[in-house]
Design a protein around this nucleic acid. Structure first.
Lengths: 183, 183
DNA sequence: CCCGCTTATGCAACTAGTTGCAAAACGGGG
DNA sequence: CCCCGTTTTGCAACTAGTTGCATAAGCGGG
């Protein structure tokens, strides 16, 4: 149950409307939590009903009109509680690893193209993160908040780096395999 | 929709009952796909209904009786199709990264203990994988199937290695932060 | 002025995964 | 032989996330 807390964090960083939140979830927030606009609007409604956030009064709340939200003290308290609470790590699920394990049994036919495609996607993502790092975390900018946010970004960068290396290695192995399309 | 394919892969590697599958999902299969026994039984039922697997005839199918399954040709074909089909990578979601980003806003109070706990868990998992590697993939064992499975295990090992390093780094940063429990 | 495109919000139905619980058979102890 | 704990199977309800679509307002061009 982390989406509401992701939204609270984002709103504390900057009060926003649903669409603005969606855009931010597609960018910086997206590298550790993704969400669609439908999820976000639903959750904004819930958070408002619970008294954790409220719509900024200035704007009128009609459909098709921008409606911005800000976090209330109760919301900040809930976020602090959640952040400090112990949580078990969720088991990971990775489709590509599963496909490779399946390929060990039913053959690797057709896999290579998709491995290459994923490699390109991860390279692209990595480049994007590195650009963010250059732009937002130049050396010397180390207020506590920046250090923590930089740490999170580093995780994103290192994970993408790992995947590009692993996929490269996988493609090499695949190329060396004897009959590449054994049934 | 990958659970049925994880099950097909596991059953091709070795026909099993629901409980045996559950045990294997807790061990080797678990490092890229996890599932509870409830999920597995439900899915076994579906796969049987679809004609992808069948119960081994030898055993009688009463409740509380072991019932083992094997993959039928249709199931193998479906797995091969799925393995070769192009799939988009799923966006990642990581609660710990989210919590750290939240901590940049609401303070790091209470985080350290859980970071340490996660570090221990990842170290434990890493040790377990390394043990599997020593046992199952001694140097020189490189039939095609082994190479692919080893590659998958390497991903698990390298990911756990990454997390132990990152968490260690995070703890260092946290220790250096000025007021460790600023609200 | 009204048509169609974009922006912004949102509902509803579906899919996948989780949690809680229970029933049937087996096996050992009294 | 029967009671009770364990093994194995399974249903049902719930939670979270995804997909598809709808509705309202603003805006620019013919």
């Amino acid at each position: 149950m982390s989406l509401p807390h992701a939204i609270l964090t984002a709103l504390l960083e900057k009060p926003s409307s649903g669409l603005e939140l969606t855009r931010r979830f597609d960018k910086s927030i997206g590298y550790f939590w993704s969400a669609t606009h439908q999820q976000i609007y639903r959750e904004l409604g819930r958070l408002e009903a619970e008294g954790h956030i409220r719509a900024l009064p200035s704007e009128q709340p009609a459909r098709g009109q921008k409606k911005s939200y800000e976090v209330l003290p109760a919301g900040r308290a809930e976020l602090a509680r959640w952040t400090a609470a112990s949580q078990d790590p969720k088991p990971h699920r990775d489709v590509m690893l599963l496909r490779l394990r399946a390929a060990a049994v039913v053959g690797t036919a057709g896999l290579e193209a998709d491995l290459r495609r994923h490699l390109d996607l991860h390279r692209l993502q990595l480049a994007e993160y590195q650009e963010i790092e250059q732009r937002d975390f130049p050396p010397g900018k180390d207020a506590p908040q920046d250090r923590l946010r930089h740490l999170v970004l580093r995780a994103g960068i290192d994970l993408e780096t790992f995947w590009t290396q692993w996929l490269t290695h996988a493609l090499e192995e695949l190329a060396e395999l004897p009959g590449s399309e054994r049934a």
